[in-house]
Design a protein around this nucleic acid. Structure first.
Length: 422
RNA sequence: GGAAAGGUGGCCGAGUUGGUUUAAGGCGAUCGCCUGCUAAGCGAUUGUAGGGAGAAUAUCUUUACCGGGGGUUCGAAUCCCCCCCUUUCCGCCA
C-alpha cells in the first residue's frame, strides 16, 4: 500500500508505476475523492466539537437540576447530521481504500521496464554440467532409485503432491537442515518455526490478498489460509509494533511447507517437481532501516546464492523487469539453477525489496529517537531456497553414468556420511 | 465441543449504578534543577492516526481510538447485540 499523501503529491509518478507494472487500476478520481473526504472530515469534526461541548454542558445542568430540554432537542438534530456525514465519509473512504489496495508498489528506478522478455541476466556462477552419457531427468532417477513416488502420492492427495521415500526423504531433510544451519550460523538469521496457516489479515499484509485468493488453499470454516510461503508468518511477526532502532535489522529464517493451488497454470511446467501444490522452502526475511534496504537486498541475495555455491550447483541471477515484478515488490532478483536433465534453468529463489509497501499494510514502524515520529520500516524477503526444484537440479546434476546420485559434500554430515544414492 | 474469568496508553494498573476521567495512580523513559560523582530528591514532559490554520518536519487547534464491528443515548471505557483473542478447568484427540 502506498501513502495517501505520496499519491496526492505524486500522481503522475504513481500512474507511471502502475503502467510499468502492467496493472490496470484507475486512480483518476482519487484526487477528487481525497479532497472530498478531507472537506467532509473538517465539517463533521466541527459538529462533533460542538456536540462534545454542549453534551458536557447538559451534564452540568442536569446535575444542578436545571431544565436542558431545549439543548437536548438541538443536539438530537446535530447528532443526526453527524450520523449522516459519518456514513457518507465511510463510503468515500471505502472507495478510496478499494483504489489504494489495488495500487501496486512502484518499481525502483534501477528496474528495467517491460515484460519478462526484458529481464536481464546479471551474473552466472558455476559451469553448466556436460556428461559423456545421456543424462536422465529427475523423474526417471527418482523412480529408478525408488526415492520419489508421484503415482502413489496422487492416491493420497491427487496430482502435484510429491512423496519422498527412503534416502529421498532423507536428502530433502538434509537440504533443509543444511540451509537453515548456514543462515543461522554464518549469516546471522534467527530461526523461527512458524504456523503454517495464516489468517486473512496476515495474508493481506504481505500482499497475497486480495489479488491472489484463488491461488490459495483456504480453510473456509476458520477463514485460514495454508501459507504459500513462510514470508507471510515471518513478515507478520511484528504486526502493529513500533520497534526500537537498536533492534534493526531483524533477520528471520524459517523452514516451512508451502502450499499453492496453482490455479490456471495446469499444463505449464507441470512435470514432476517443476510445479507442485506442496513444496518445502527455507525463507529469509529482513526488517530493516529504509536507507539500508537496497544494500540489504544485495546481502540477502548473496546469502541465498551461497547455498547454491556450497552445493556446487550452477545458477544465474536475473533482475526482473517491471512487468514481471510481483504486486508488492519494488525490485526483485530471481535465482535460477541449471538442471541438466530438463536442460533448463529453474527458478529457486526470488529476493525482493518491498520498501515500506508491506510495512504500511501490516503496521511495522520504528523510532529513530525517543521524541521523533515513528517511520515505516522496509521489508525484504527471499527464498534461501526452495527445495523441490533444488532436488531436481541436484539429482540431475549429480547423477553418474551408473544411474546413481552422488550426495554433495556439504550434505553428507546430515546423512550419516552416506555419499551416494543407489 | 462445554464452563468460567478476562482484553484499558511502552509496561503495571484504577475506573463497569453512563456526565469535571479532557483515561486516576504507579513504573519506566527523556529533559532540567540539586549533588564532588552515583543514588535519592524536586520539577516538567511522556501514545497513535486523521483533519484544519501555517512557509514550516516550529507551533496552535480539533476529531477518532480503552480487543474488533454494530446499536441505544444529548452524551458510552462504562449499557445492549455479534465476532475475535488470551488464560484456567472439563471433555475429546495427536
Amino acid at each position: 500500500m502506498l501513502d495517501v499523501k505520496f499519491i496526492r503529491e505524486n500522481l503522475e509518478l504513481v500512474k507511471e508505476g502502475i503502467r510499468k507494472k502492467g496493472e490496470n487500476v484507475s486512480i483518476d478520481n482519487f484526487i477528487e475523492l481525497d479532497s472530498k473526504r478531507r472537506k467532509m472530515v473538517t465539517e463533521v469534526d466541527q459538529l462533533k466539537y460542538k456536540r462534545n461541548l454542549v453534551s458536557e454542558e447538559i451534564g452540568k445542568m442536569m446535575k444542578e437540576k436545571k431544565e436542558a430540554k431545549g439543548l437536548i432537542e438541538e443536539m438530537k438534530k446535530v447528532s443526526e447530521e453527524i450520523k449522516t456525514c459519518d456514513s457518507e465519509i465511510q463510503s468515500i473512504e471505502k472507495e478510496i481504500y478499494n483504489i489504494l489496495i489495488n495500487i501496486p508498489n512502484i518499481p525502483h528506478p534501477s528496474v528495467p521496464e517491460g515484460d519478462e522478455s526484458k529481464n536481464i541476466e546479471i551474473r552466472r556462477w558455476g559451469k553448466l554440467q556436460e556428461f559423456d552419457f545421456t543424462p536422465k531427468d529427475h523423474l526417471q532417477l527418482g523412480k529408478e532409485l525408488d526415492i520419489i513416488d508421484f503415482p502413489r502420492a496422487s492416491k493420497i492427495a491427487g496430482g502435484g503432491f510429491p512423496l519422498y521415500k527412503g534416502l529421498g526423504a532423507r536428502l530433502e531433510r538434509a537440504l533443509i537442515n543444511f540451509m537453515l544451519d548456514l543462515h543461522i550460523n554464518k549469516h546471522g538469521y534467527t530461526e523461527i518455526f512458524p504456523p503454517f496457516l495464516a489468517n486473512r489479515d496476515s495474508m493481506f499484509g504481505t500482499g497475497q490478498l486480495p489479488k491472489l485468493e484463488e491461488d490459495m488453499y483456504i480453510c473456509e470454516e476458520d477463514d485460514l489460509f495454508l501459507i504459500p510461503t513462510a514470508e507471510i508468518p515471518l513478515t507478520n511477526i511484528h504486526k502493529g509494533e513500533i520497534l526500537d532502532i537498536s533492534e534493526l535489522p531483524k533477520c528471520y529464517t524459517a523452514y516451512s511447507a508451502c502450499f499453492r493451488r496453482e490455479a490456471g497454470s495446469y499444463g505449464k511446467e507441470t512435470r514432476g517437481f517443476l510445479r507442485v501444490h506442496q513444496f518445502n522452502k527455507v525463507e529469509l526475511v529482513k526488517i530493516v532501516l529504509p536507507e539500508n534496504s537496497y544494500a540489504e537486498l544485495e546481502k540477502l541475495l548473496a546469502d541465498a546464492e551461497e547455498v547454491l555455491q556450497l552445493l556446487e550447483i550452477p545458477y544465474r541471477v536475473v533482475i526482473l523487469a517491471s512487468g514481471d515484478l510481483s504486486f508488492a515488490s519494488a525490485k526483485c532478483y530471481d535465482i535460477d539453477i541449471w538442471a541438466v536433465g530438463e536442460k533448463k534453468f529453474l527458478e529457486v529463489s526470488s529476493c525482493s525489496n518491498f520498501e515500506d509497501f508491506q510495512a504500511r499494510r501490516i503496521g511495522i514502524k520504528f523510532r529513530r529517537a525517543k521524541d521523533t515520529k515513528p517511520e515505516f520500516v522496509h521489508t525484504l524477503n527471499g527464498s534461501g531456497v526452495a527445495t523441490a526444484r533444488l532436488m531436481v537440479s541436484l539429482l540431475e546434476n549429480y547423477q553418474t553414468d551408473e544411474g546413481t546420485v552422488i550426495v554433495p559434500e556439504v550434505l553428507r554430515k546430515y546423512m550419516d556420511g552416506i555419499n551416494i544414492i543407489k
